[in-house]
Design a protein around this nucleic acid. Structure first.
Lengths: 250, 250
DNA sequence: CGACCACAAGTTGTCAGACAAATCAAGCTG
DNA sequence: CAGCTTGATTTGTCTGACAACTTGTGGTCG
């Protein structure tokens, strides 16, 4: 009867028709072939002109609609989205993880959000969450002592703080942004020159400790300040990397 | 008579079936009802259990697939995406613009981001941007004096501040979040009871003035504090609305 | 002439059924 | 046991149809 679920890798396989057409339409829109507010060809027309069934066209349009690029009005037609409508998703359009300046910019955003998050956490954290937070802190320390990368543990620590705000949007936001800065640390560094020194690691851990302590003390201002110092020092570290590579490649 | 235009802010028109089901599936996923890597029910099963045709199910799944929440493998099934991949877009999953508590939560996020933005703007704003900022401020005042809604002008003012950070991510972020709080002000208020009083409008304008002044003085701390006060007072206004409507409907 | 109304054509939304292509489990064969 | 076949299952695509809705047109009446 029902088969057991199976986790499996993904193979590109054959490109689905709907995806091909979705890409085509996407290009048409971004190229201004159909200007905002204008009506696209009807589904039947698109089906005939692309030589596929209407079902395929509808699926392609569903993809575009999910991205907010078009809006369909029953009885009227499908229209290219009016730029006035607020974006449904935040995508960080011009973010290039290979550019250090871009990472630094995102870190500025993170400092803003997480600083406030730390402050709110200091006001709202529960006893249980505080225990979890300390566990995360210990896990980071353990990973660093063992000489391993503490990326995952660091992520968990920051996430625990976001959790303690009791405002789910902070969690979502950090999941979105954190993934774009933390995991890159090693990748970017590339040459061994940028491996963090023991002194840096020590400072890293001390910064975390200050944050945790401030939250445990229910001191919002201190927590906010400590978190901002922490992320500011990350910014500076990236800035030094940028400087050194710039001079190296010059 | 006109049969369609009247009544029904409460009745969200006729929701498309696919959207309803897409939301339902989305909740199932975010609630961990189907864990990452696991297989969802088959399209036919979903169609039967929801009492709709397979076409509707496919369209709903197309939406989820566009968000990267699920992947479909021909001949095998539809699988919940591995949570390992960082989300490509930030979408504020559980945000309900009809719920005041939700708006207040978003305002907390805005306070975090825009407070810092105001601080950065105070450090980095150029002469030209400062002129533009003052124009926006004047425009808000003019609109309020004329008794008109100042939503657009308010939006432009905050956007000008985000611009002055010279960090495009702040702008993107505000475009994304601002649209979710400001424009709703009137809609939500509904009954005339919630129309802002003259005193509130005056305070609103004074708060703006403090922000602009602090930025012009290049005082980051003051700018940050002023902006946070401003958004905090918005939160409080919404909170009062929530309180009054709660007691009214009780 | 102008305003209003009924209607038809056009478009998206939904349904039903079918076949093709891919996958997977089980059985069969050597 | 290895390898192949086979059949059931599932997604991908096609076809045709009808329902719900929008819009413009023409007609009717004041």
């Amino acid at each position: 009867m029902t088969r057991k679920p199976l986790a499996a890798p993904a193979l590109p396989a054959r490109r689905k028709l709907a995806e091909t057409i979705e890409d085509h339409l996407r290009r048409m829109l971004s190229r201004g072939d159909v200007k905002p507010g204008e009506r696209l060809p009807t589904e039947n027309a698109l089906a005939k002109s692309h030589g596929v069934s209407r079902a395929v066209i509808r699926e392609a349009l569903a993809g575009l609609r999910a991205d907010g690029l078009v809006v369909a009005r029953q009885g009227s037609g499908v229209f290219a989205a009016d730029g006035t409508e607020p974006p449904k998703h935040l995508s960080l359009a011009n973010f290039d993880p290979a550019k250090l300046s871009s990472i630094i910019e995102v870190l500025e955003l993170r400092a803003a959000v997480e600083g406030e998050a730390a402050g709110l956490a200091a006001q709202r954290i529960t006893a249980g969450e505080l225990i979890r937070l300390r566990e995360c802190h210990a896990a980071v320390a353990a990973a660093l002592d063992a000489g391993r990368s503490a990326q995952d543990q660091d992520f968990a620590l920051h996430l625990a703080i976001a959790d303690a705000t009791h405002n789910s949007h902070f969690v979502e936001f950090f999941r979105f942004l954190g993934a774009r800065t933390i995991p890159r640390a090693q990748i970017i560094s590339g040459p061994s020159a940028m491996a963090p020194t023991r002194r840096e690691l020590r400072r890293f851990h001390e910064e975390h400790a200050e944050i945790v302590t401030a939250i445990a003390d229910r001191d919002p201002a201190a927590a906010c300040a400590a978190m901002q110092r922490h992320l500011k020092s990350s910014q500076e570290r990236y800035a030094r990397v940028a400087e050194s590579t710039a001079s190296a490649t010059a």
